[in-house]
Design a protein around this nucleic acid. Structure first.
Length: 866
DNA sequence: CTGCTCACTTAGGAGAAGATTT
DNA sequence: AAATCTTCTCCTAAGTGAGCAG
């Protein structure tokens, strides 16, 4: 990791006064945390899942935001967030002065880069505001959820910065819009009616209901909903698909205990199978906690089901994990999956068709009359829980989910899906403020599992869109927020000072909020507010070293320099008697922090900063690219470089694959091979025209210094061998052909004859190597021709080297996560259009579907900016 | 406040599918 | 056509944060 990447020198002029609370002797003193914890919510209730409680339907389960738009009193807003249908007029403008109009030189140095990005952010605070007002984007300052009245439609009619010129409206571009349902219309009719021409058009096509198969609901062109807490008016679906019943092992496949095969109840056998089938996942299987948890649960199941018996039907006590031998089970499953893979293609296809057919009813639902894809309609099958990191419960048995545990959420008038024969649902509800279709609780942590729509659905798209709009909104407040927290770094109130410090970290280093966790039942990971004493090391004068496990137990390690005041604060927050295990921010919780953030901007929370910083960084980096006259792969590479920086910012990692090292070496060898070829080709020039040596200089003809004699010899051997097998293969093939044509085959003598060429090649290469002279190849070689060749080879080397660097730089960075969740897709779409790179190069099929809204909504606006 | 429930986004890895090389 | 490498999709765990009760 590039350690310098985040360096940022503490501003010089910072006054190093000792704040009055530096000593913090008052009652504000940090509470030692060991167990006098202030903010813990440690005790985790035993999850009760009362699997029954029965389907007396209507019981509204969902609690969320159901209080209808209560207050209009617009400064009660803060606590009201989501529900507030009406809001104070968007906060006007930040009071920041200070114009930094240097123009952000994007050097390659990340450090400077980051700094300038921040600067740019400040700038952006003001400029776009002005620009926007004129340009379009009326929505920029419109709080997302608001939208009363017929605003935009009448005027310029671009919902989200989509232009779609009015004049166009007579060409039926939008053949698609049919889908809107009657209900949908009622909800928004007020807004819909208003604008004459265009809306009428839409409406008209909307009438064509029922054929939504083809129709695409362009919600991004639709008027904004008044009340987005209601998620649907009608909802039909077919429930969930349960996993198949357990398929017993064949009689001859047994678990062994102490060297002897044993039998047991199918229920226990299934559990043994879970472990046995994952033997290749050493990472889990060799983890002692995993073993212990598995074994405990396994024993329990055994006990409940009559225990284990040997061949003769005698009971066998299963006492020690280490005496269990799953290898037969493993072999069986392994062979089975191999066999499946090896089946003829036709068979596979058939099976797939069959499966698709069985799944078809669950794949889609009808949401407000529109067909929408369901995301995860399959109920999670039983398995061993694979908690990440040092999860205390990893390896425990995750039980089979029964219909009796599943709650169905569905439209009032919809047909309730039939539970599997002989079963019933836990409950049926009709909560239209929830987006899920089905829900159950899992037995390990009592976590809720929801069946929701797929990423390409309107509902998910809309919230994605809102997320990015929220982040863009932050642009207008960021400079004020930064100023404030910089000031508050010196606040006399401990809590405020901690809050400001936390905000600084979240803003600068893209830390997560860091909610409180349950130490006993979860892996010990942290985010900003839950950072512990030992996660931060301070080094004078202003270096901070982070080292902690974040979400998914991914290590966050970074050495950064911070504002001097931040450094001092952290030092203070770590002051004795604090010790390992204690919270750094002992007076701060995420909800306090978020509440404070909310006072700057409706809906602002810590996570918005990650989105904002990621997208803003991407935007800035893309703007700084020199993209002219490049090939498509080169442009893609540049884009990916930017993407990678964002991924690094967000600490998105992946484990480097086992084969990585070998692959790199192979690539390296290929490059060396090309370089050798390059050298040979250049030598040919000298063969044709020795005078070129003076002309081009010795340097030009030199061999890459990483290539030594030993390597060349090896390489020659390799080339020769390669050639040999090639000829051999060719010979065999030719013979096969002859045979097929009933002609007589060539004798081995012919092969030998042909192989002579190889011997000659070998001789030639060796001679070249010795004499360092290369005879020109080809007929009538000329300097020009050879130079053209050189050019070609150099190009190929460049490509390969690029590829190698790319891959190495990528080995432990995952680009996907930031692309999917953090980088406003419109940035990518605009880049793609502006520089003529097909969007397919950036978004896979599913991603294109997910980001359809982005692709469509900036398709006529190359100047869209984050 | 705190504690707890609930809903929804974000995350990495496994395995399938596709592309490329042999 | 098989082997191998690369990319994509699926899966589900692990976060964030809203909102309610006491």
């Amino acid at each position: 990791m590039d350690i310098d990447s985040k360096k940022k020198l503490a501003p010089a002029g910072i006054s190093i006064r000792n704040g009055p609370i530096e000593e913090d002797s008052d009652d504000d003193a940090p509470l030692v945390n060991g167990n006098g914890k202030r903010k813990s919510r440690s005790s985790i209730a035993k999850v009760s899942y009362k699997a029954d409680s029965d389907s007396d339907d209507s019981r509204p389960l969902a609690k969320r935001q159901r209080k209808v738009a209560d207050s209009d009193s617009d400064d009660a807003i803060m606590s009201r967030r989501r529900s507030s249908a009406k809001l104070p007029p968007a906060v006007t403008e930040t009071a920041n002065i200070e114009d930094s109009d240097d123009d952000v030189p994007l050097t390659t140095k990340l450090a400077q880069r980051k700094k300038s990005i921040e600067k740019a952010a400040e700038k952006a605070t003001k400029k776009p505001a002005a620009k926007k007002a004129v340009k379009d984007e009326s929505d920029d300052d419109v709080p997302l959820s608001r939208a009363k009245g017929p605003q935009r439609n009448g005027t310029k009619a671009k919902s989200n910065g989509v232009k779609k010129e009015e004049s166009d409206s007579d060409t039926p571009i939008r053949s698609k819009v049919k889908a809107a349902t009657a209900k949908d219309k009622t909800a928004t009719s007020a807004t819909k009616k208003a604008p004459a021409k265009k809306a009428a058009k839409k409406e008209e096509s909307a009438e064509a209901e029922g054929e939504e198969e083809e129709g695409e609901y362009e919600w991004w062109n639709a008027p904004k909903k008044e009340d987005d807490s209601v998620k649907w008016t009608t909802l039909e679906h077919n429930g969930v698909l349960f996993p198949p019943a357990y398929e017993p092992l064949p009689k001859n496949v047994k678990l062994y205990y102490d060297g002897k095969p044993i039998s047991m109840h199918l229920e226990a056998e299934e559990v043994a199978g879970f472990f046995g089938s994952m033997l290749s996942s050493t990472h889990n299987v060799e983890n002692p906690v995993f073993q212990k948890n598995f074994f405990g649960d396994f024993q329990e199941v055994l006990k409940r089901t009559g225990g284990a018996k040997d061949r003769d039907g005698n009971k066998v006590a299963i006492k020690e994990f280490s005496k269990l031998d799953f290898s037969k089970i493993f072999d069986y499953y392994h062979a089975k999956s191999e066999a499946r893979k090896a089946r003829p293609a036709a068979e596979k296809k058939e099976e797939k068709a069959e499966r698709d057919k069985a799944e078809a009813p669950f794949m889609y639902c009808k949401w407000d009359g529109r067909k929408e894809k369901v995301g995860n309609f399959r109920v999670e099958p039983p398995s061993l829980f694979r908690g990440r990191g040092e999860h205390p419960k990893t390896g425990k048995l995750k039980l089979r989910v029964m219909p009796e545990q599943v709650t169905i959420n569905i439209g009032k008038d919809a047909q309730v899906p039939q539970p599997p024969a002989g079963h019933k649902w836990k409950a049926i509800q009709h909560d239209n403020k929830a987006t899920w279709l089905a829900m159950w609780q899992e037995n390990i942590n009592g976590a809720y599992k929801y069946v929701m729509l797929a990423a390409n659905s309107a509902i998910k798209g809309q919230s994605d869109f809102k997320k990015f709009e929220k982040a863009r909104e932050l642009k207008k407040h960021i400079s004020r927020i930064r100023k404030d927290y910089e000031r508050e770094l010196k606040s006399e109130i401990m809590a405020d000072r901690q809050r400001a410090t936390a905000m600084y970290l979240i803003d600068k280093f893209a830390l997560r909020a860091g909610n409180e966790k349950d130490a006993e039942n979860e892996a010990e990971t942290v985010g900003c507010c839950s950072l512990k004493y030992e996660h931060i090391t301070l080094r004078e004068p202003n270096t901070v070293i982070f080292d902690f496990l974040g979400k998914d137990s991914i290590r966050f390690y970074d050495e950064v320099t911070v504002d001097r005041q931040v450094f001092k604060n952290l030092r203070m927050f770590k002051k004795t008697p604090k010790k390992d295990g204690d919270d750094i921010f002992d007076r701060l919780t995420t909800s306090q922090l978020n509440k404070h953030l909310g006072s700057y901007m409706q809906g602002l929370t810590a996570k918005v900063f990650r989105t904002y910083n990621a997208s803003f960084t991407m935007s800035t980096l893309l703007k700084g690219l020199e993209v002219k006259n490049l090939t498509i792969p080169e442009k893609v590479k540049l884009y990916n470089d930017c993407n990678r920086e964002v991924a690094i910012l967000c600490n998105h990692k992946r484990t480097v694959g086992a084969g990585h090292e070998a692959q790199m070496e192979k690539l390296g060898d290929r490059i060396k091979g090309m370089k050798y070829q390059l050298w040979r080709t250049k030598q040919m020039i000298l063969d044709v025209d020795p005078k070129q040596k003076k002309k081009k200089g010795t340097e030009y003809f030199a061999l890459d210094d990483k290539i030594d004699d030993a390597w060349i010899e090896e390489h020659i051997a390799f080339l020769v061998e390669e050639q040999r097998t090639k000829i051999q293969k060719k010979f065999e093939k030719d013979n096969e052909k002859l045979q097929a044509n009933k002609e007589k085959v060539m004798p081995d003598k012919e092969l030998k004859e042909r192989l002579k060429a190889v011997n000659e090649l070998e001789k030639k290469l060796k001679k070249e190597h010795k004499s360092k002279k290369v005879e020109a190849e080809g007929k009538s070689p000329s300097v020009d021709k050879i130079e053209a060749n050189v050019e070609k080879i150099e190009q190929r080397i460049k490509t390969l080297e690029l590829q190698a660097a790319d891959r190495d730089g990528n080995k432990e960075v995952a680009l996907g996560t930031s692309k999917i969740n953090y980088i406003d897709p419109r940035l990518t779409v605009v880049f793609s259009r502006k520089f003529d790179v097909p969007i397919e190069k950036f978004f896979s099929k599913t991603l294109r579907e997910k980001f359809n809204w982005a692709i469509k909504s900036v398709e006529s606006d190359d100047n869209w900016e984050f």
